[in-house]
Design a protein around this nucleic acid. Structure first.
Length: 464
RNA sequence: GGAGGGGUGUCGGAGUGGCUACGAGCCCGGCUGCAGACCGGGUACACGUGGGUUCGAAUCCCACCCCCUCCUCCA
């Protein structure tokens, strides 16, 4: 039985170095998910896909992974948009959570164990806030509760900032009740939007406290991996650290992982810039596996510049993998011998992912194994080949989160296939090829091997 | 202005002192009635710029240039 090694390391934004994890043991992961006021875009997908591969690979290494990814369902933008549409903020959030889950499924993101929502953890947030006030880390003013940055000497350690520099850069008009411009809100006393009663006035939680609360509720004081987009380093994660560590007195996370931005036209893809591509549009246009290959084609810490050219190359890689997957599905190897090729490539795949989640190199190893499969298939040697070839292939395929369409083709497709076979046997190749083209446009490819014809549901991205 | 991360062949991307990772692309050929996958050959023998250290540097040192992100909600 081939498997991945029980250890991996990732680089940690906080220390700047690597942190290693060794199975078997529990692995707790928390990833900052979406704020649900609109459809998710492929920038979000890049981050989620990165942690999806981390999740799957850690699982394959023998860790008992506990993965939590939240939804932020209360925030100014949700309230604003709901007001514009004349519906309740929570209703709007509910709607976009449903849409997001649909997109996640389309992307074949493996569901985290828990997907908590901010509004379901207000009590936990209030408990933390109360304790922070008692211990002098936070103070109450008429407009709410603020965290006092000066009570946490390590403030700035994640984003490598110094508090005195923050003051100079503070562009927001400060609340006059703030003692220090760098202090941030834990609780906001307000009159509109979803409101909760609290000892400090009716209102709602500040930005960052939700993650501290949800991490603490679901995963404990110190988690193994905390992740998110690189744009969350400051202030979001910095503030989480300040709150949580003041509250528990322990480190919040052993490793902080941040995914580089997806840029488009040399600018970050962001709703506020209006340059987004929705996940569902991208999946529809390019297919889930091609899109996944593309968004994972750059190392996760590097920025990725969106390009059709890059998508096209990702598709070329996927074609090779896809074809091998079908070859293996149609002719599963049954040999008992060892496969040195499969072992070597699996090892390379394993090492790549173990070394700070080098997915591009891992994909490269899978492509080479796919080519090996293709060679065996073309030589009609696949059935007699080592089972390890299939074992290694499906392991790699699964860890990278690829998925082939399930189930047999619909009847009308099968009818066309047999029609084409008839034409072909009569030597009417022109008409047969026209049918092949028509099937292709329906998403089905025919592969003739000897006297057999295979029907494959394939991705057919559009690059115009 | 401050902080962080980068600049490697057409693209993506390894590589932290010597042995041209790797993958895709592109061109030609083979296999195929034609295709896909597969196979053979070819193309690119690159390292932001200028100095320095060294027998030897993409890798070390110095200076400079450029790009991206963050410093405001943001995956």
């Amino acid at each position: 039985m081939l498997r991945l090694s029980p250890r991996f390391s990732v680089s940690d934004t906080l220390s700047g170095g690597r942190v290693e994890f060794v199975a078997p043991r529990e692995l707790t992961m928390y990833v900052c998910g979406l704020t649900v006021y609109d459809f998710a875009h492929i920038g979000h997908a890049r981050t989620l896909l990165t942690f999806d591969v981390l999740y799957r690979s850690a699982d394959a290494r023998g860790f008992a992974v506990k993965y939590v990814q939240n939804f932020t369902d209360v925030d100014d933008k949700i309230i604003d948009r709901a007001a514009r549409e004349g519906i309740e903020p929570l209703e709007l959030a509910e709607r976009f959570i449903a849409e997001a889950l649909r997109d996640f499924d389309a992307l074949n993101l493996r569901r985290p164990a828990v997907m908590p929502r901010a509004t379901q953890h207000v009590g936990a947030m209030q408990r933390i806030i109360s304790r922070l006030i008692e211990s002098g880390h936070a103070y109450v003013v008429p407009s709410g509760v603020y965290f006092s940055v000066s009570t946490f000497p390590e403030y700035g350690k994640l984003s490598k900032r110094r508090v005195d520099q923050l003051l100079a850069g503070a562009r927001v008009e400060p609340d006059p009740h703030k003692r220090d411009p760098a202090d941030f809100a834990l609780w906001k006393v307000q009159g509109s939007g979803p409101l909760w009663d609290s000892p400090w006035g009716r209102g709602r939680p500040g930005w960052h406290i939700e993650c501290s609360a949800m991490i603490n509720e679901h995963l404990g004081d110190t988690i193994d991996i905390h992740g998110g987009g690189a744009d969350l380093i400051f202030p979001h994660h910095e503030n989480e650290i300040a709150q949580s560590e003041s509250y528990t007195g322990k480190p919040l996370a052993r490793a902080w992982m941040h995914v580089g931005m997806l840029n488009i036209g040399s600018e970050k893809m962001a709703k506020s810039l209006g340059n987004i591509i929705r996940i569902r549009d991208a999946v529809e246009r390019w297919g889930p596996n091609t899109l996944r290959t593309y968004l994972l084609s750059a190392h996760y810490r590097s920025p990725l510049e969106f390009s059709i050219e890059g998508l096209r190359k990702a598709y070329e890689n996927w074609r090779i993998i896809e074809s091998a997957a079908y070859d293996l599905r149609e002719s599963p190897p049954s040999g008992d011998s060892e496969s040195p090729e499969a072992r070597a490539l699996l090892r390379e795949f394993d090492d790549s992912l173990a070394s700070d989640l080098d997915v591009p190199s891992a994909i490269s190893a899978l492509v080479r194994l796919s080519r090996h499969v293709g060679r065996l298939a073309s030589e009609r040697r696949l059935e007699g080949a080592s089972r390890e070839v299939a074992e290694a292939f499906w392991l790699m395929f699964g860890v990278l989160g690829y998925r082939l369409p399930e189930g047999p083709p619909p009847d009308d497709v099968l009818r066309l296939v047999s029609e084409r076979a008839r034409l072909r046997s009569e030597g009417r190749f022109g008409e047969a090829d026209a049918l092949r083209a028509r099937l292709r446009s329906m998403g089905y490819e025919l592969v003739d091997v000897g006297d057999r014809t295979y029907v494959r549901a394939v991705e057919r991205p559009r690059f115009d």
